[in-house]
Amino acid sequence: MSSLPSAVRSPSTEAAGSLLDVEHISKSYGATRAVADVSFSVAPGEILGLLGPNGAGKSTTMKAILGLLRPEVGSIRVLGHDVARDGIAAKREIGYVPESPSLYEFLTGAEYLDFVSDLYGIDAATRVGRIHQFLAGLELAGHEDALISGYSQGMKQKVALISALLHHPRLLVLDEPLNGLDPRAARVVKDLLRNLATSDGVGVLFSTHVLEIAEAICDRIVILSRGRVVAAGTVGALRAQAGLAGSGLEEVFLALTGTGDLTDVVRALRR
């Protein structure tokens, strides 16, 4: 933990012990460097936004945290478990929603959630109540016995979210979790994440392209660009770093990722 640069280290890390420590990881695909020397941490009860343009390395970083990819350099610890050495223990603590959830579409929603409950060892008595709560809260009740192949994109996203939350994970890794959700469901999820963080001390690593959402719910933000951390801190700190006091996160983001002046692009597109 101590080797993390202060800007990317959670302020509460020292006191509470972090849930997630990503330290100097790098990952390449052939000649393409997807992630280069990325470090950050997530403290209990903290929602950390991971932002960046397309291809910045967000999904690669998240997959590495899950142990789905192995960084060539660096280490990742989830509640003290080294993901490379003790991946199973780390995965037990994580709830994950991938960018494009691939579900088993030949199962019904209920069967899928039963399946995931078995994978995480959730006993029958516990799962019943939790699944019903989530289905009702996200307005999926009544659809659970239909095949997932017949679900809309938003319904699939809801199933993916429920399956990530069922086993009471202490760390949530959510890659674009609000994709396809209707406004009510999106609001429920945002409030739920905030509640889980403040009441249960769940840590959340949250990736999104919707900067208003990031600004509204994230405690801190890490901005990646071309595989590197270009800025990290609270929205206020990022404003200060970009020299844009009083601006919205969108302006700050564009300035920090070097994509600020879009006038020429818009003019060209209008032709």
Binding site: D114, A124, V128, I131, H132, G142, A146, S149, G150
Partner: peptide, 17 residues
């Protein structure tokens, strides 16, 4: 191609097999 069939009976969740 995706006509979902809806049934309203509550599913019984349980570890089986």
């Amino acid at each position: 191609v995706t006509a979902a069939e809806l049934r309203l009976e509550p599913h019984r969740y349980a570890a089986r097999h």
